[in-house]
Design a binder for these strands. Structure first.
Lengths: 192, 192
DNA sequence: CTAGAATCGGAGTTGTGACTCCGATTACAC
DNA sequence: GTGTAATCGGAGTCACAACTCCGATTCTAG
């Protein structure tokens, strides 16, 4: 199960390059979509193409690494908010938070769909943690009656993706706010 | 403004091929995304690549033609429903209708964003009609108090795109229904 | 039926982007 | 400081997809 190779720590310059590449890739993919070329990323990171492929054997691997990082951070945020005193506001804060980071999140959905990659597979470990954190956050909010009871984590994920798309499409800030309000109100319990 | 060339009617076989291409392209783009190759479309339509490019000088033009057709049909459906006796149910029926046709609709959003094409420009005429029909449909539903008053056509479009994405992501039919319910309830008037 | 124009088909061109390879360079142990 | 193994850089390869071109084919007017 656990991989056999002991993986000695990377040389300092290699580690720097790897981190820089991840940061730049996240930015570029968010800005230009997942169709952005690896050459573009290499150039912006100030390294050669060879270096990109040394660290990430395929473009898909690079994408996966970027999304894994994003998932990790989302999971942390969700966990942090899931211990908040008021589960209701915490839940909606998280929702808004994710949607505000929409561009990168959409790049994620795009990539996974287009590449035909198995989302559950590639990101299984981290995604599992994220799912658990979402479950906690959602469950608590439902327990205090802040969120309708007929929603599960699957629906929540779908709504996160949909909301990200929607606000990206809405344009100006006020339209975004009104659009987001529909999601928020729609997730509240029906009929009081 | 009106173009000068009198455009003589196409030869019978040419018109057949053109229609067949549009139909096949819509299917293929919906199934495999807008990244599907023109060769694939030509093959499935049973024509040569040359024929595709004779009718649609670029791939982008083919995409635009497909979406124009879709917009046209949506506009018709919206217009038909906008004269219904009960504006509220008519509005929500239209919303559901569009979302059920999600795949193709998403292909639209993808293409326009990725290609960097000006949506308003390419589809201006038809999109204008669609917008007008949406406005009518929305306005009537709001007038009878079936839909919250703070939504405009821009928000409605964003919600249509977002909902399409969301249900596409949701997976099984029941999750889709619960997800859609969030949209529907969220668009209803608040506190009333 | 025939002439001739419109249309078709698909091999070939061109451009782009993922990925490889290996000599040059650099970090680290001693 | 020096040896050496890890890392870097980027020219070159390969595959694929958009688009062109022109001889072959098909439609239609007469």
């Amino acid at each position: 199960m656990a991989s056999g190779a002991p993986v000695r720590p990377l040389r300092a310059d290699a580690r720097r390059n790897r981190e820089r590449l991840l940061a730049v890739a996240e930015e570029v993919f968010a800005a230009k979509g997942t169709g952005a070329s690896t050459e573009e990323i290499a150039r912006q990171a100030g390294v050669g193409i060879g270096t990109v492929f040394r660290h990430f054997p395929t473009k898909e691997a690079l994408l996966a690494a970027v999304f894994l990082g994003r998932f990790e951070r989302l999971g942390e945020q969700a966990r942090a908010l899931s211990t908040a005193a008021e589960p209701g506001p915490a839940f909606f804060e998280f929702f808004t938070l994710v949607v505000d980071q929409a561009p990168a999140k959409n790049a994620f959905a795009d990539a996974m769909e287009q590449a035909g990659v198995d989302v559950q597979g590639v990101t299984s470990g981290i995604a599992g943690e994220l799912t658990a954190a979402l479950e906690e956050l959602l469950g608590r909010a439902q327990a205090v009656g802040a969120v309708r009871a007929d929603l599960g984590v699957a629906e929540l994920k779908a709504l996160l993706v949909g909301a990200s798309r929607a606000v990206e499409f809405a344009g100006d800030r006020e339209a975004c706010a009104r659009t987001l309000a529909v999601f928020v109100d729609g997730m509240r319990p029906t009929g009081g």
